[in-house]
């Protein structure tokens, strides 16, 4: 289509018209986007709470230096749902001969977050994903040559006495179920 001579010439562009067009159109387009992005960013404004969890009775962790796996059971909130008493993870408890408190090791691999495995009787923990190996105290078998950037994460342990029955003190093992970022030499808590 060729231009006709009768076509009106474009009006002289005034600075004001351009500015208003840009601002009005821009606002119309950007407002919904901004609102959407604000909603999208919600997770950044939420903080995770670190639960203290009763993991076991002390009598379930004999002081034989062998790791035992215990589920971490706590209430969990997922968006609109609240799940009472859910398995939210696992810890290994290891009590050295004569030690009063067990060591609690998070089963989450510091490398990429896989579940570190332990076969009863084995001499070390192994991660099934990228084959990191850890000694029974959580230290990396190959030190800095290991794929995992740090040793297994030890979690704070607290012993709580709940009462005496059959002449035996019942002591519970409570663990603060901290979560750390993977892939770093230092323990950086996840928010």
């Amino acid at each position: 289509m060729s231009k006709s001579k009768n076509e009106p010439k474009p009006p002289r562009r005034s600075f004001l018209a351009v500015a208003v067009a840009l601002v009005a159109g821009g606002l119309a387009a950007v407002t919904p986007l901004a609102v959407g992005i604000a909603a999208f960013l919600t997770p950044l404004f939420r903080r995770r709470e670190t639960p203290s969890v009763r993991v076991a009775l002390l009598q379930q962790v004999p002081d034989d230096g062998m790791p035992r796996s215990f589920p971490v059971v706590a209430n969990r909130v997922d968006a609109w749902n609240r799940y009472p008493a859910q398995r939210i993870g696992a810890v290994y408890l290891v009590r050295e001969p004569g030690a009063e408190k067990p060591l609690a090791l998070s089963a989450k691999c510091p490398h990429a977050g896989c579940f570190i495995g332990y076969a009863p009787g084995a001499e070390m923990f192994t991660c099934p994903c990228h084959t990191s190996e850890f000694k029974l105290d959580g230290a990396r078998v190959h030190g800095d040559a290991e794929v995992s950037p740090r040793d297994m994460d030890a979690l704070p342990v607290e012993l709580r006495e709940v009462g005496i029955a059959d002449g035996l003190a019942h002591v519970e093992v409570w663990v603060q179920f901290l979560d750390f970022q993977t892939g770093h030499k230092e323990q950086i808590p996840t928010a």
Partner: peptide
């Protein structure tokens, strides 16, 4: 988890991707 190791923005990126801490 690997994405969360991206320099600087990693942890926030992961949170945005999975919509929270968990």
């Amino acid at each position: 988890n690997l994405a969360s190791q991206a320099p600087l923005v990693g942890p926030d990126l992961k949170k945005l991707a999975i919509g929270g801490s968990d």
